[in-house]
């Protein structure tokens, strides 16, 4: 499992716009580089990122080979209710990593 860092404000007022930040460890190998053996290094990237807020999708991103290693994704959402934000990164082979964070809305 890859190492990931997530920042979600622990609490917010209802209706507040909150910034969410995520960072995950991944090589994001483009597939365009040539290795020391002279053969191309196969492409290995995360190609999909989704954030759900109490089950509802609030953010989705498609990632392509031009994204740098260790993708950092930040976005905003409206704090509507207390609950769980789930983040999932899926690589090109279909392997998914999910991590969650909670937010308290008053």
């Amino acid at each position: 499992m890859a190492r990931a860092l997530i920042h979600v404000p622990p609490s917010a007022k209802r209706g507040d716009i909150v910034e969410i930040k995520t960072l995950i460890s991944h090589v994001m190998e483009t597939g365009y580089r040539i290795g020391v053996t002279g053969k191309p290094i196969p492409r290995d990237i995360i190609d999909d990122f989704v954030c759900t807020y109490n089950g509802e999708e609030v953010f989705r991103a498609k990632l392509y080979p031009a994204i740098a290693a260790n993708p950092f994704i930040s976005f905003f959402t409206v704090a509507t209710e207390s609950g769980t934000l789930a983040f999932s990164w899926t690589d090109q082979h279909g392997a998914t990593q999910v991590q969650t964070a909670t937010i308290k809305v008053e």
Partner: peptide
Amino acid sequence: DDIANPAML
């Protein structure tokens, strides 16, 4: 920013 700094991984 400890969340943005990739070395924190």
